[in-house]
Design a protein around this nucleic acid. Sequence first.
DNA 1: ACCGTCAAATGGCTTC
DNA 2: GAAGCCATTTGACGGT
Length: 301
Amino acid sequence: MELELSLGDLPAPVKASTMPAPATCQGEDHDDLALGLRVTATQRADQDNQRISIETAEGEEDSDEACRELPVRASPFRQASSANSRGFDVNAAVPVDGRASIVRSLSPPSMHMEVPVTQGVDEEASEDEDNGGGRVRKKLRLSKEQSAFLEGSFKEHSTLTLEQKSCLANRLSLRPRQVEVWFQNRRARTKLKQTEADCERLKRCCEALARENRKLQREVAELRASRAPYPLYNLNHHLSGFSTVLPAGSSCDATTRSTVSAVSSPGPSPVSTLFPGRPHFGPFTVSHPVLPLCRQPSATL
DNA sequence: ACCGTCAAATGGCTTC
DNA sequence: GAAGCCATTTGACGGT
């Protein structure tokens, strides 16, 4: 059995040290929000879809409550830098094309940030004519701080409630939809890494089994070469430990156990009935490929 | 300029 | 019907 898997290295776990320090986004931080987010509720309602305005209307309290559960830190947007690792300044480089606008913060110059405000894409569908039908999807890249912030939240919970979503969106000057999409993509990445790790583990397991298989085949060849007239004694000797390690109810139980019992039983050879047409060496030749899967990996012959 | 990679965004499907 | 999942598309960026 040969499996050819080409997989990358196991992903390094996300280091907690890269995460912002824990805090809440409760009350005291709302000033920060106001600093960075000159996007008022009404403005946001204009930009975003109606669902969002409902969320806002339904309760500041609920939002606060949700925020309390979030690993929300002091607003990362108080920091001056908004350029991400690739040098794209999300908060400055948003083109104004009729669908996007820049809301300028009223905070001091050192804290100035330009918050990109784009309309919900869902709403844009009806505005395609503006671009002659050829709407170009504008894609912003999240800043380091935004990503770190979201990452911290993701560590706490990989899914979001409505309140958590809107709270995060408010904090990060993003649309709830963007937060939602980020979490979806993040879950996808997590799953992908998990799949890669699983594949890697299976690959190693497979290699171990292949080694075991080759080893057993060598032993079979040696036994064949020994020219014993009928090597059942040797087989019984080799199989003597199997009955204790076979997993109960496993799929290989029936085959292997019957094989073992058949081999172990005295009297006329059961070979001809169990394995008609097989070489004269006995059942071990046939059942052998199954055996490695049923034995303890550390078992030695 | 081209290519590969990353990640945001989209649309379809499934689940509850 | 809303939300999540998944495959895919798309845009931005870095490396060559």
